[in-house]
C-alpha cells in the first residue's frame, strides 16, 4: 500500500465514528479548563517571569488541541499481532517493517489530529486573555512553530516505534506501552508544562529527546525563545529525530534476526 493510501485509510477510519471524535473533543476541552484552572491556582501563589497566565493557558490549549499528535500508544493492530503471535509473519514479508509501521503510526496521528484540532483552537481564540489561546508572537515564530511541530510529530512516532520494539521484545505490549507512555508524558511536559518545573529539572530535560516533541513548538508559539534560539533548538530536535529513527531501525533489525533464528 502506498503511504497516501495508508493515510487515507486512517482518515476514513477516524471519520467512521460520529460520537468518538465529538466526545473526544468535548473531553479535551473540559480537560483544558481543568488544567488551566489548576495551574492558575498555583501561579496565584507566586507568579513567574517568563510564563504568564496567558502564556500558560495558551500552552495548555495547544496541548489539548494537538493531544492526538503526541499521544504515545502502540497501534491496536500491532498489539493484536503481538498477542496472537502473528508478528513473525510480518517479518517474512519483503517490505521494510519499520517503514511500514512508521507510516502507519504517522498516518493515524495526522488523521486524528486534523480531525480534532480546529474546534479547540477556535475556542481558545474566543476565550478571554486569562484563560484563552494567544496568537503566535510573530509570523516568524508561527513558521518555526509549524516546522517544529512537524519534527515533533515525527519524533513522537519514532518513540512509538521504540515502544513497539519493546512490546515485541517483552511480548507484553500493554505493560511496555504503559511504561513508555507515562515516562514520556512526564518528561515531555504533557503532565506538567516544563516552565512550571524547577530550573534544575528543566536543565536535565534539555538533554533528553522528549521535550523536543511538544514542549518546543508550544514554547516557540508563546514566545519563550528568540528566533535564533528556536532555530538552534529545532536543529537539536532534528538530530534527535535522526538518532531515534536510526536506533529504532537497528533495534527492529536485531529482533528480526532473532525471529528468523527462532523460526529456524
Amino acid at each position: 500500500m502506498s503511504y497516501v493510501g495508508i493515510f487515507k485509510m486512517h482518515l476514513k477510519g477516524e471519520l467512521q465514528y460520529r460520537g468518538k471524535a465529538i466526545s473526544g473533543i468535548v473531553t479535551q476541552v473540559f480537560w483544558g479548563f481543568m488544567r488551566i484552572s489548576l495551574f492558575t491556582a498555583f501561579l496565584a501563589t507566586s507568579s513567574m517571569q517568563d510564563f504568564s497566565l496567558y502564556q500558560m493557558s495558551s500552552y495548555i490549549w495547544l496541548g489539548q488541541a494537538f493531544l492526538a499528535a503526541f499521544y504515545i500508544t502502540v497501534p491496536p493492530e500491532v498489539n493484536k499481532d503481538i498477542v496472537r503471535g502473528d508478528i513473525c509473519y510480518k517479518f517474512i514479508r519483503p517490505m521494510d517493517i519499520y517503514n511500514q509501521w512508521y507510516a502507519s503510526v504517522l498516518g493515524s496521528k495526522i488523521a486524528s489530529t486534523l480531525l480534532r484540532f480546529s474546534p479547540i483552537i477556535i475556542l481558545g481564540f474566543c476565550l478571554p486573555n486569562s484563560m484563552g489561546l494567544m496568537l503566535p508572537v510573530s509570523f516568524e515564530a508561527f513558521l518555526l512553530f509549524c516546522v517544529s511541530m512537524c519534527i515533533g510529530v515525527c519524533l513522537c512516532s519514532a518513540v512509538i516505534l521504540i515502544a513497539i520494539y519493546l512490546s515485541i521484545k517483552t511480548l507484553m505490549p500493554k505493560g511496555a506501552s504503559a511504561i513508555v507512555m507515562s515516562v514520556t508524558s512526564l518528561l515531555s511536559g504533557a503532565l506538567i508544562p516544563l516552565p512550571l518545573m524547577p530550573a534544575s529539572v528543566q536543565t536535565v530535560l534539555n538533554f533528553l529527546p522528549f521535550r523536543y516533541m511538544s514542549d518546543l513548538p508550544y514554547r516557540i508559539y508563546i514566545g519563550n525563545f528568540t528566533i535564533a534560539e528556536s532555530c538552534m533548538q529545532i536543529g537539536i530536535a532534528f538530530v534527535w529525530l535522526v538518532a531515534l529513527i536510526v536506533i529504532g531501525k537497528l533495534l527492529m533489525k536485531s529482533s528480526l534476526k532473532k525471529v528468523v533464528v527462532q523460526g529456524g
Binding site: 498555583f42 505493560g175 512550571l196
Partner: peptide, 27 residues
C-alpha cells in the same frame, strides 16, 4: 510485568505532583 508498569504509571504521576510543589511549595 503489568503490575510493575502500573506502579511506574502511578509513580510518574506522583513525580508530577512533587515537581509542581518543588516550584510553588503551597497551593
Amino acid at each position: 510485568f503489568l503490575s510493575f508498569s502500573q506502579a511506574v504509571v502511578a509513580v510518574s504521576e506522583l513525580l508530577a505532583v512533587y515537581v509542581l510543589f518543588q516550584t510553588f511549595t503551597t497551593v
